[in-house]
């Protein structure tokens, strides 16, 4: 067997093997690896390449080494999932960099992080003022995660005691002019519904690049032809405005009408509508 054929066969075999091993090792993104994982991946890559090129002459030796580098991490991962001690030993422990708003200089030194780097990592988290940070931690992957002081955190509807509409994920029902049946069934809709909605919008299916249904059941369409202006669904806002108008009308009638009974009827119903508007506001406007 000429040497090049041998290298070809070795390379193919090791390519497949390395592919399978790396898949078996998990889904961790290379940029989020702990140093230990990085060493494992590098060792597998180097061993596979050296064996393929016959730098390691004996194919079996290469395989043995590969097996050790792949199986040991798997075993260690298994142990790490069960024991916190093993996990910390393997992947290290996160370091607290800022605690109760104070920078922990000792921990910074231990992590070999300069003040400059800490500030850079904070800026990467959109924190330009170190005084805004209550707590920051250096993860084992090298990321810095930040907990802002409670008065510097963005306001949430919960804090404002606002009720907001629960929103589920939108479903894509049209892609590149093709109907995605999975999205439709997920929303409990069918092609007949879609056909009606498209007709309402006055658009042919072939002209739609992306169509999505939001959790309110409204269809958003993006067309291939960007010159065409499509009215975006505003039904909820219109419904709210319509009810508001009707409520104002009733108040008006109550003021104009003669006779106690009719006046009370109008005023009572105006009150009902006002309450209804207040109740529906989170669903229709937010």
């Amino acid at each position: 067997m000429p040497e090049w054929v041998e290298i070809l066969l070795r390379s193919l075999a090791l390519f497949l093997l390395a592919f399978l091993l790396v898949r078996a090792l998990g889904k961790k993104h290379p940029a989020k690896m702990s140093p230990f994982t990085f060493v494992v991946y590098s060792a597998i890559a180097v061993t596979a390449a050296l064996t393929a090129l016959k730098v390691i002459e004996n194919f079996i030796f290469g395989l043995v080494s590969l097996a050790v580098w792949a199986l040991t991490p798997l075993a260690l991962d298994y142990l790490a999932a069960r024991s916190k001690m093993v996990h910390d030993l393997l992947h290290g422990k996160e370091t607290v960099l800022i605690k109760q708003g104070k920078i922990m200089e000792e921990n910074l030194k231990q992590a070999r992080l300069t003040a400059e780097e800490l500030l850079r990592d904070l800026r990467a988290k959109d924190v330009f003022n170190a005084a805004d940070v209550e707590f920051a931690v250096l993860e084992t992957t090298g990321d810095v995660n930040v907990l802002l002081k409670s008065d510097k955190k963005p306001i949430t509807p919960h804090q404002m005691e606002w009720k907001v509409l629960p929103q589920t994920e939108p479903q894509t029902v049209i892609m590149d002019g093709n109907i995605i049946n999975e999205g439709l069934t997920n929303m409990g809709l069918n092609q007949g519904w879609l056909a009606v909605e498209l007709e309402k919008a006055g658009v042919a299916l072939e002209n739609v690049f992306v169509g999505q249904v939001d959790s309110q059941g409204e269809l958003y369409l993006d067309l291939f032809d960007d010159a065409v202006q499509l009215p975006q669904p505003k039904v909820r806002e219109l419904l709210y405005a319509g009810l508001e108008k009707a409520q104002a009308d009733l108040v008006n009638f109550a003021a104009q009408v003669e006779g106690e009974e009719a006046k009370n009827m109008y005023a009572g119903n105006a009150g009902k509508l006002e309450q209804l508007l207040a109740r529906l506001r989170p669903y229709l406007l937010r």
Binding site: L165, P166, T168, M187, G188, S215, Q216, G217, V235, R236, L239, G242, L243, K245, A246, D249, L250, F253, R279, L280, Y283
Partner: peptide, 29 residues
């Protein structure tokens, strides 16, 4: 006129009561 717009609103709301995915929203409608 007011009656007509209220009837329209009722129709839209009935549609929402059927198509909203969230239980709470459906009940509100």
């Amino acid at each position: 006129q007011t009656l007509a717009s209220l009837r329209g609103a009722r129709g839209t709301m009935r549609a929402y009561a059927n198509q909203a995915r969230d239980e709470e929203a459906r009940n509100a409608y």
